[in-house]
């Protein structure tokens, strides 16, 4: 946070933030598929239908309604009380959920106790989350951050302020993958801490012990009106295993060590991995989540562009 303090004098720029690359994205907007609850006026359709927005319909008065919203002229003509209903435009409340478990370090290099995450899923996720958060805030929407490792490790409530964005970028930059995945627990914690509905963009490899628990938590989000977007990050090494034959594989979440001749298992592994990925897709899609399978071999900018094209307003 000390860096952030100095940012008052000198704007903080995350190393994952590539302003020139994102300049071309600034005309693109990230939009939810349905109405959202927002705090402020914005570009997105609000779930609330109040009196300050655009008129959309009449509704017969029922006791308890706000009498200020009765259309008196219509009452005079019709003899019955009708309320005028208006659709609000509001801002987007988007929370980025990042998987901070050890498995996200796939693709990086570990030298002793030091981790070089270049080329890893985690680094890709950091780039993507930084860019997406920037674009959300840039669109005057609120962006929040939840980092889930073994639980909800870090949480920044959605905000559209630049300070929050910088804090978010800083947080993302400082993240390191570690430990086992407590995705379900983290989601539950996040749900408890979220006061407003919004959009949940979840970046994870979904390598969890129990996918059912994760799905259950996501159903809770959905039940509370959240729109859940899942980006399933897959590293090429996970999909195809590395080139070569003799490997001593070490688990990234303390899963032990396996000596293996890949020529013997590669095909079976690939089949099994595809089955797992397909199963994940089906489960998440079945929950009502938007599912995107993302290979980290692709540029995060390309993926972001495609994502925004689909999700663009």
């Amino acid at each position: 946070m000390s860096n952030l303090s100095s940012s008052h004098t000198q704007p903080y720029v995350s190393r994952f933030f590539d302003a020139s690359a994102l300049a071309g994205f600034e005309q693109m907007r990230f939009s939810p598929r349905r109405a959202v609850d927002g705090s402020f006026s914005g570009r997105h359709i609000s779930r609330r239908r109040g009196g300050a927005g655009e008129f959309v319909d009449y509704r017969e008065y029922s006791p308890g309604d706000d009498v200020r919203r009765i259309d008196w002229k219509a009452m005079g003509r019709m003899g019955r009380a009708y309320l005028k209903i208006f659709q609000d435009d509001t801002d987007l409340n988007c929370t980025l959920v990042l998987d901070g478990s050890g498995s996200m370090a796939q693709g990086g290099i570990t030298r002793g106790s030091r981790q070089d995450l270049r080329g890893s899923k985690f680094e890709w996720m950091q780039h993507f989350a930084t860019a997406l958060s920037h674009l959300i805030v840039f669109g005057r929407d609120a962006a929040g951050l939840a980092v889930i490792g073994q639980g909800l490790d870090d949480y920044l409530a959605p905000s559209s302020s630049l300070q929050t964005r910088q804090l978010m970028h800083h947080t993302i930059e400082q993240l390191t993958p570690a430990g086992a995945t407590g995705l379900a627990q983290g989601l539950e914690d996040l749900l408890n801490r979220s006061t407003r509905r919004g959009v949940l963009v979840m970046l994870s490899d979904f390598l969890v012990d129990s996918m059912d628990e994760v799905v259950a938590r996501l159903r809770n989000f959905r039940a509370r009106g959240w729109e859940v977007i899942t980006l399933h990050l897959i590293h090429p090494d996970e999909q195809n295993l590395p080139d070569g034959n003799a490997f001593r594989f070490a688990g990234l979440e303390g899963d032990g060590v396996v000596n293996c001749q890949l020529s013997e298992v590669r095909r079976a592994y690939q089949q099994r991995f595809e089955a797992l990925a397909d199963s994940t897709r089906k489960v998440l899609s079945g929950t009502g989540c938007d599912y995107y399978r993302v290979s980290t071999s692709e540029s995060y900018l390309d993926v972001l562009r495609s994502f925004l094209v689909v999700r663009g307003a």
């Binding site: 796939q106 570990t110 090494d237 295993l241 003799a246 688990g251 979440e253 293996c260 298992v265 099994r272």
Partner: peptide, 19 residues
């Protein structure tokens, strides 16, 4: 014989199941 290359793998459980 080829020295096994140390390689971190997130899907090691999956690999173990296959093995």
């Amino acid at each position: 014989r080829p020295r096994p290359v140390e390689f971190p793998l997130s899907t090691i459980q999956l690999l173990q199941e296959v093995i």
